[in-house]
Design a protein around this nucleic acid. Structure first.
Ligand SMILES: NC(=O)c1ccc[n+]([C@@H]2O[C@H](COP(=O)([O-])OP(=O)(O)OC[C@H]3O[C@@H](n4cnc5c(N)ncnc54)[C@H](O)[C@@H]3O)[C@@H](O)[C@H]2O)c1
Ligand SMILES: NC(=O)c1ccc[n+]([C@@H]2O[C@H](COP(=O)([O-])OP(=O)(O)OC[C@H]3O[C@@H](n4cnc5c(N)ncnc54)[C@H](O)[C@@H]3O)[C@@H](O)[C@H]2O)c1
Lengths: 217, 217
DNA sequence: TTAACGCTGTGAATTTTTTCACAGAAGTTT
DNA sequence: AAACTTCTGTGAAAAAATTCACAGCGTTAA
C-alpha cells in the first residue's frame, strides 16, 4: 500500500471538480492559477482549495500560484487516471442511454466499454458507440475488459440482483441510480445517486426562499 | 417566519430518503417502524434517524417505534409537499427527456409542468406528457404556473444564461446538471449535480478497493 | 538594499456532523 | 408487582470538515 493518510469522499469530489474546471480553462493561455481563482471556478473557498491540494501533497508558489498543467497531471494521477478505467452500464433505458451518450468519448480515462440489458431489443446492438450484451454475458465481458466500475440504471426491482452480478463479475465500485439501498460486500464502494432526493431538496430550499421573498417584500 | 432552527441540506436529504423508503414500504401491513429499521433501509445509523426526526420535532413511542403514516405525513409536510410544487425543465435533450419520463406522474407533489428548448423540433410538442415551449416563453409560462424550481439540462455553454432567465422568471431553486458553477442571486438555491464528478469518485474508490483486493490476496 | 505586496502552507480555532451512552418510558415475563 | 427487555429522546463526547489567521516567501518597486 502506498497511501499515507486516507482521503475523504468530499475531498475526492472536489479534486475531480478542480480537474474539470482546469480542463475547461486549459484552452486559455493562462499557465498558473491562484487558489482563489480556482476556488471561484468551483464555488468553494480559497482555503479549501489549498487544504485539498495540501492533502495530496501538491504545492504551488506564493508568487505564481499553482502551475495548471502540473496540477492537472498530479490530480489526474492521484485520481487514478494514469491508465484507462473501464466502466460498464446495466440497464439501457432512458437514463442509461442518456449516460451512454454523455460519457462515450467524453472522458479521456473513464471509458464505458459495455452495456447490458435484458430487453432483446437492446442486446447485440451498438448504442451510442457502446456494444450491448445480454446480462448473462456480464461475467465474461466484465472480466475480459477488467472493468472496475458498474453503473446501475435498471428499475428499482432489479437493482439488487444487478449489483450482485456486477460484484460477482469483479466490479469494485458501483454508481447506482435506482432508489434502493444496495447490499454489497465490504470491498465494494457504492454511491447512490437518487435524483428524486436531490430534486426534493432543491424544492425544499426553493420553497424557503420563495417564502422569504414574500415576507421580505 | 415560522422556522425555529435552520435545518441543514444533509438532514433534508435524509428526510427525503426516509419518506421515499416509507412510501416503498407502505404496501406492507406494518404500521410502525423502529429507528434501526428505517436506518437500515436508508443506509444510515439508528441514532442518525432519531436525531433527524428529533430535529423536525417528530417523536415515536419506545415500545412501537414510529407510526409510519404519521411519519410520512409529517415529513411530507415539513418538506413542503402540503401543496403541489411546480417544476420546469430547460434543455430537452437526452438527459432532459430521461428526467421528464422519470418524473412525470411519478412524484405526487413535484410536478413538471413545462419544458423549454431552443430546438424547433422540440417546441410546441408534448414530450412524455409535458408541454414544451420556446425559451422566449419562459417568463410567461413560469409565472403562469408559479413554478419555483428549474432543472437545467442544457449544454454547458448555455447554462448560465438559462439560470438567469429562470431566476428572472421567478424560480427560487435550481437543479443544474451542466458542469459549471452558476452565478445567481443570493435568494436562489442552486444544487449542482455533476454526474462526471460522481463517477470519477466511484472510479477512484473502485480502484482503491481493487488494489486492496490484489494485495490482500 | 529595503520595503511592500499578495500569495501559499499550515497550525489552531471554529463549526458542523455524527456517534455514544444512558435515563426514562412502555411493554412483557415471571 | 417486581424484574427484564428494548426502545426513544437527548445531553455530551467525538470526529470530521471548514475556516481563520498569520509566518514566511518570492516578486516587484523604489
Ligand atoms: N430516467 C431518469 O431520469 C431517472 C431519474 C432518477 C432515477 N432513475 C432510476 O434509474 C433507473 C432506470 O430508469 P429509466 O428511466 O432509465 O428506466 P427505463 O425503464 O427507461 O430503463 C430501464 C432499463 O433496464 C432494463 N432492465 C430491466 N431489468 C433489467 C435487468 N434485470 N438487467 C438488466 N437490465 C434490465 C430494461 O430493459 C430497460 O431498458 C430506475 O431505477 C429509476 O428509478 C431514473
Ligand atoms: N446526458 C447525460 O447523461 C449527462 C450526464 C451528465 C451531465 N450532463 C449535462 O447535462 C446537459 C445536457 O446533456 P444532454 O446529454 O441531455 O445534452 P443534449 O445535447 O442531448 O441536450 C441538450 C438540449 O438543450 C437544448 N438547448 C441548447 N441550448 C439551449 C438553450 N439556450 N436553451 C434551451 N435549450 C437549449 C438543445 O436543443 C438540446 O435539446 C449538459 O450540460 C451535460 O453536460 C448530461
Amino acid at each position: 500500500m502506498t497511501e499515507s493518510t486516507k482521503i475523504s469522499k468530499k475531498v475526492i469530489e472536489r479534486l475531480s471538480e478542480y480537474r474539470t474546471a482546469l480542463d475547461e480553462q486549459s484552452a486559455g493561455e493562462q499557465r498558473n492559477i491562484f487558489s482563489h481563482e480556482l476556488a471561484r471556478l468551483c464555488g468553494v473557498t480559497a482555503a479549501q482549495v489549498r487544504r485539498d491540494l495540501m492533502s495530496i501533497g501538491f504545492s504551488g508558489s506564493s508568487a505564481k500560484g499553482y502551475d495548471i498543467n502540473e496540477l492537472k497531471q498530479t490530480v489526474s494521477d492521484f485520481l487514478g487516471f494514469g491508465e484507462e478505467r473501464r466502466v460498464v452500464l446495466v440497464g439501457i433505458g432512458h437514463l442509461g442511454r442518456a449516460l451512454l451518450d454523455f460519457f462515450v468519448n467524453r472522458h479521456p480515462k473513464l471509458v464505458v466499454c459495455a452495456g447490458f440489458d435484458v430487453n432483446e431489443m437492446r442486446i447485440n446492438r451498438v448504442i451510442h458507440g457502446v456494444r450491448c450484451y445480454a446480462v448473462s454475458e456480464m461475467e465474461r465481458v466484465v472480466a475480459e475488459n477488467r472493468a472496475q466500475v458498474g453503473i446501475i440504471t435498471v428499475p428499482e426491482s432489479a437493482a439488487q440482483e444487478t449489483a450482485e452480478r456486477l460484484v460477482e463479475a469483479g466490479v469494485t465500485g458501483v454508481l447506482n441510480f435506482a432508489p434502493v439501498q444496495l447490499r454489497v460486500p465490504g470491498h465494494v464502494f457504492v454511491e447512490n445517486l437518487n435524483i428524486s432526493t436531490v430534486l426534493e431538496k432543491v424544492a425544499y430550499f426553493a420553497g424557503l426562499n420563495a417564502d422569504r421573498e414574500r415576507v421580505t417584500k
